[in-house]
C-alpha cells in the first residue's frame, strides 16, 4: 500500500499509466495501417516517436519535483516506467530513422551521422540511455548501491543532449524548443533550488 492507496486501486493506476503511454504507439500503428500519414510517412513516424521519447523522459524528470512540492510520494512508483518508456520510444525513433529514412544504406547512414550534428547528439542520448535501462531493475539497484545513484545522474546529461537535439532542428518555429525547454528547465531548477536550500543550514553549523 502506497500512501493510502489500496493495492487493488494502485494496480489500477499502474495499468492506467502503462496503457496511457502505450496508447501513442497503438495510435501510430493504426495511422500507419490506415495510411493516414501522407506522402512522407517516414518523417511523420520518426517525429512522432521522438516526441513521445521526450515526453516520457521529461515525465521521469518531473517525478521528484512533483513528489517534493506536491507531496505526491506515490509517483516514485512510476519513475522507472517513465524512464523505460523513454528508452523504448527513443530506440524506436532511432530504428525508424535508420529504416524508413536511410533504408539501412551504410554510406548514407555514415553521412547523416557525420553531417547532421543534431543526429549525433540524439544518437549519443539514446546510447547513454542503454546503461540506465539495463540497470533499471530493483536487483541492479541493490547490487550497485551508491554507484547506481551516480550512474543514473546521467539522465541530466541525456536531457541536455536531447534539448540540443531539439534546438538544432529549429527551422520555422521555436515552439518545440520553448515548450520542451520550459518543462525541462523547471524540473532541473527545482533540483538546484532544493540542493541549495538543503546545503544552506549546514554551512551555519
Amino acid at each position: 500500500m502506497v500512501l493510502g492507496i489500496k493495492p487493488a486501486k494502485s494496480r489500477l493506476v499502474w495499468c492506467f499509466v502503462f496503457f496511457g503511454l502505450m496508447l501513442p504507439l497503438l495510435m501510430l500503428s493504426y495511422d500507419i495501417y490506415t495510411q493516414q500519414l501522407g506522402a512522407d510517412p517516414a518523417k511523420e513516424i520518426v517525429k512522432y516517436l521522438g516526441t513521445w521519447a521526450i515526453i516520457s523522459l521529461w515525465l521521469s524528470l518531473w517525478v521528484t519535483p512533483l513528489r517534493r512540492r506536491l507531496s505526491l510520494a506515490w509517483l516514485v512508483r512510476f519513475r522507472r516506467m517513465f524512464g523505460l518508456y523513454a528508452f523504448f520510444y527513443s530506440v524506436l525513433h532511432l530504428l525508424a530513422f535508420a529504416t524508413f529514412i536511410v533504408g539501412w544504406r551504410f554510406e548514407i547512414l555514415l553521412e547523416e551521422f557525420s553531417e547532421r550534428p543534431y543526429i549525433i547528439v540524439g544518437a549519443a542520448a539514446v546510447l547513454l540511455l542503454i546503461p540506465l535501462a539495463v540497470t533499471s531493475t530493483k536487483k541492479m539497484q541493490r547490487r550497485l548501491k551508491k554507484r547506481w545513484l551516480q550512474l543514473h545522474k546521467l539522465v541530466y546529461l541525456i536531457s541536455i543532449l536531447v534539448m540540443v537535439h531539439v534546438i538544432w532542428m529549429v527551422r520555422a518555429s521555436y515552439e518545440d524548443a520553448i515548450i520542451y525547454g520550459g518543462f525541462l528547465a523547471v524540473a532541473l531548477f527545482e533540483r538546484i533550488y532544493f540542493s541549495y536550500k538543503k546545503s544552506k543550514p549546514l554551512k551555519k553549523v
Partner: peptide
C-alpha cells in the same frame, strides 16, 4: 527522397 516514399523503400 522522391515522394511519395513507402516505408520500406525510402
Amino acid at each position: 527522397r522522391r515522394l511519395p516514399s513507402s516505408l520500406f523503400s525510402p
